[in-house]
């Protein structure tokens, strides 16, 4: 298992987090940063304080430095105290290593590390939403978030999904650390009080800005620049297979392992019904912005039956 150095600012931020959280009226137990809000199949939490591993339990608190580990076909949704949700997908290992939230000012500072597996982040309330930096680190990239929904996967699955994309193709990838990150929205025509989302994916000496739903960045290995493209329906489905359930799985929260096959099988259907999209995005390198031209998505006529 690879170890990451603790972020230099992490210790100070952690101390701040504790201070802030102790003072929070939302907090029943000091130091907790979120709650185990939904659990599917096998999910374990390795406690930062005791180093002991125990099964995830609904309503249990997640503490700073706790590590969530999921098995195949398993998921965990963590409801953070600012009401953002962080979903840990299949075969993942995730740590919340920085969390500061002050309900009085609605300011936050969140840092999450994903060592492997799939994940999704959704910002907190769209009305009166918290402000402040949120970053997610993978072994090869750092993602800065501006009020948004995004998903990603680290490791072999990232490599598999990305290399099936025509815009990526065969590249030299590290199957342990390769990272695929996808902005899911909100898009520029979002409704309600939500604002369009955007994320900055930094890797190597470059930063790629994703500012439209389903734009993706693939970082194949350490030091490599992000490859920006529009994720295909098949790619999106493959990612969802790690994060979502399908109706065929049956009820009761115990699920099965047929979901992935059903998702992959649905890729062709999705591809055939997808409407066209548009491609916008940019890659910044050493202060210079480069236009990115992802390949056009598949198009087909669509209408009511």
């Amino acid at each position: 298992m690879k170890r990451w150095p603790f972020h230099p600012a992490g210790r100070a931020a952690a101390a701040l987090a504790c201070t802030s959280l102790v003072a929070s009226p939302l907090l029943a137990q000091a130091n907790s940063v979120g709650i185990e809000a939904a659990i599917r199949n096998k999910v374990e939490i390795r406690a930062a304080a005791t180093k002991k591993v125990k099964p995830a339990v609904l309503h249990d608190r997640v503490f700073l430095g706790d590590q969530a580990q999921t098995d195949k076909a398993s998921q965990l949704q963590i409801l953070l105290l600012d009401l953002s949700t962080f979903t840990v997908g299949a075969s993942a290992r995730v740590t919340i290593d920085r969390f500061v939230y002050d309900p009085a000012t609605n300011r936050r500072d969140v840092g999450i590390s994903v060592a492997r597996g799939a994940f999704r982040f959704m910002s907190g309330r769209s009305v009166g939403k918290p402000t402040g930096p949120v970053s997610v680190r993978t072994p090869v990239a750092t993602i800065g978030i501006r009020g948004t929904i995004f998903e990603g996967v680290v490791g072999e699955e990232a490599e598999k999904i990305a290399e099936r994309e025509p815009a990526v193709g065969k590249v030299k990838s590290d199957s342990d650390e390769a990272s695929l990150i996808v902005l899911r929205g909100p898009g520029p025509r979002t409704q309600g009080d939500t604002t369009p989302g955007a994320i900055d994916v930094s890797a190597g000496d470059r930063t790629a800005t994703l500012n439209e739903a389903d734009l993706a960045a693939y970082v194949p290995r350490r030091g490599a620049a992000p490859i920006v493209f529009r994720l295909s329906p098949a790619g999106l489905l493959a990612l969802q297979s790690l994060l979502r359930t399908v109706p065929e799985e049956g009820g009761g929260g115990n699920g099965g392992h047929g979901g992935r096959d059903a998702l992959i099988g649905a890729a062709g259907i999705a591809a055939s019904i997808l409407l066209g999209g548009k491609n916008k995005g940019s890659v910044q390198s050493q202060g210079q912005k480069q236009p990115v031209k992802p390949p056009p998505p598949p198009r087909s006529p669509n209408g009511r039956p």
Partner: peptide
């Protein structure tokens, strides 16, 4: 997560994706 077989929550989820301008995600 708790009720993967239930269709109505999925339909509301899909309509939300559209409202959030993730049309492709909704179609998937």
């Amino acid at each position: 997560f708790a009720h993967p077989e239930a269709v109505p929550p999925r339909l509301v989820y899909i309509s939300l994706l559209c409202r959030l301008d993730d049309r492709e995600g909704a179609e998937v």
